[in-house]
C-alpha cells in the first residue's frame, strides 16, 4: 500500500492550467491513475471534456506523449499505438518498456466508442482503458448517455410535465467488459484513492487488456457545489450505487463493503439533477432506483461468492 507521500514523489502527468471546470472529477482520476504507470506512458484520449480542456492549442497540459484522434475510437487508436510498439521494439527502434492508457468519457466509452472498445478488449491489446464516467455527454451540454442514471435530468432527458428525467437504468459496462474475459476489470472512485491507485497498478501490470470504470463527478452537469465532488463519490460508494470491485481472471472481489449501506436517496439528494425526484409524485421512481441498486449489489455479492468458490 502506497502512501500519499510516496505518490506525491511520482511524476505528475497532468499540468495545471487546463480548462476543466473547477471541481471536475475527471482530472482527479487522471492524476491518480497515471501515477501507477511507473515508467514511460502514452495517453490516448477520446473527444470529450477532458480532451478539449487539456489541449487548447497552443497549450497542452500533458507532460507525456498524448494522442486524440476522434470521439468513438480511442481504443482503436491506442490499439495502433500498441501494435506500433511491438513492431518497433522487434525492429530495435524502441528499447524501453512502455505503458499505454486510454481515457474516454462515458459517451465515448459506453455509447459511440462501444464497438471499438469491445474490439480492442477482445484483441487483448496491452493497454489500460479508463472510462471517466460522469454520466452524460458533458462537453456538448449534458445530454443523456447510456451511463446516465435513471431519473437524472439532462438536456435530452429533461424533466417535464410528463417526464421525471431519464427513464432507463444505466448500462452496466464494467460487467460487459468483464464478460470480455480480459485479464483485469475494475470499478473505482476517486474518494477511495488508495483502492483506485492499487487497481491502477494491477491494471498496468496485467498481461493484456485492462478496463477501469472510474466514477467522475461533474459539478456542472450534476448540479452540486464544486467542493462536494469527493463527498459525492463517497456517497455513491456508501450507498452501493457505485460499488468498488475488481474482476481478475474471472474472479470477482468486492474491494469495499460499506459497514452500513446508506439509502440511495442520500446520494441523489446531494445533486440538483435529481432534485425533482423529491417532489411529491415521484416516490415510485425513488423506490425503483433503490430496488435496482439493491438488486445489482446483491448480484455482485453473489458473483463474488460464486466465482471464488
Amino acid at each position: 500500500m502506497a502512501s500519499l507521500k510516496e505518490l506525491s514523489a511520482l511524476p505528475e502527468v497532468l499540468a495545471p492550467g487546463h480548462r476543466l471546470c473547477a471541481g471536475c472529477g475527471a482530472p482527479i482520476v487522471v492524476r491518480m491513475i497515471t501515477r501507477a504507470a511507473k515508467g514511460p506512458l502514452v495517453v490516448a484520449n477520446a473527444t470529450g471534456c477532458l480532451e478539449v480542456s487539456t489541449t487548447i492549442y497552443p497549450y497542452t497540459s500533458w507532460n507525456t506523449p498524448w494522442i486524440h484522434t476522434a470521439f468513438e475510437n480511442a481504443a482503436a487508436t491506442a490499439s495502433g499505438v500498441e501494435a506500433a510498439y511491438h513492431a518497433l521494439k522487434r525492429r530495435g527502434k524502441v528499447d524501453k518498456d512502455i505503458n499505454i492508457v486510454v481515457f474516454g468519457g462515458d459517451g465515448g466509452t459506453y455509447d459511440i466508442g462501444f464497438q471499438s472498445l469491445s474490439g480492442a478488449m477482445e484483441r487483448n491489446h496491452k493497454l489500460v482503458y479508463v472510462c471517466y464516467d460522469n454520466g452524460a455527454y458533458m462537453n456538448t451540454g449534458i445530454q443523456r448517455s447510456s451511463a446516465t442514471p435513471k431519473g437524472a435530468n439532462t438536456t435530452t432527458s429533461p424533466v417535464g410535465k410528463v417526464s421525471y428525467g431519464k427513464r432507463e437504468n444505466r448500462k452496466d459496462l464494467t460487467e460487459i467488459m468483464a464478460a470480455h474475459n480480459i485479464p483485469y476489470a475494475a470499478q473505482v472512485s476517486p474518494s477511495h484513492w488508495n483502492d483506485l491507485y492499487q487497481k491502477a497498478e494491477k491494471a498496468f501490470a496485467a498481461n493484456g487488456a485492462a478496463f477501469i470504470n472510474a466514477f467522475a463527478p461533474c459539478p456542472r452537469g450534476w448540479r452540486h457545489d464544486t467542493k462536494d465532488t469527493i463527498e459525492i463519490c463517497r456517497l455513491a460508494v456508501d450507498t452501493c450505487f457505485w460499488p468498488l470491485y475488481e474482476v481478475v481472471d474471472g474472479k470477482y472481489r468486492v474491494t469495499y463493503k460499506p459497514r452500513e449501506k446508506k439509502p440511495v436517496t442520500e446520494f441523489l439528494k446531494a445533486q440538483g439533477r435529481f432534485s425533482h425526484l423529491f417532489q411529491p409524485g415521484n416516490e415510485e421512481v425513488l423506490e425503483a432506483i433503490q430496488k435496482e441498486v439493491d438488486r445489482k449489489w446483491e448480484e455482485l455479492l453473489k458473483l463474488e461468492e460464486l466465482s471464488n468458490s
Binding site: L4, L7, P16, A22, G25, A26, P27, T229, I230
Partner: peptide
C-alpha cells in the same frame, strides 16, 4: 490527492501551500 488542477504545492512529502496561479477555488 483530491485537487483537480493540481494546485497544491508539495515537496518532499510536505504540503507547501497553494499555487494561486492555477487554483480555481473549487474548495475540495
Amino acid at each position: 490527492a483530491f485537487c483537480p488542477e493540481p494546485a497544491i504545492k508539495v515537496e518532499n512529502g510536505r504540503m507547501l501551500g497553494i499555487d494561486y496561479d492555477h487554483c480555481k477555488g473549487c474548495g475540495i
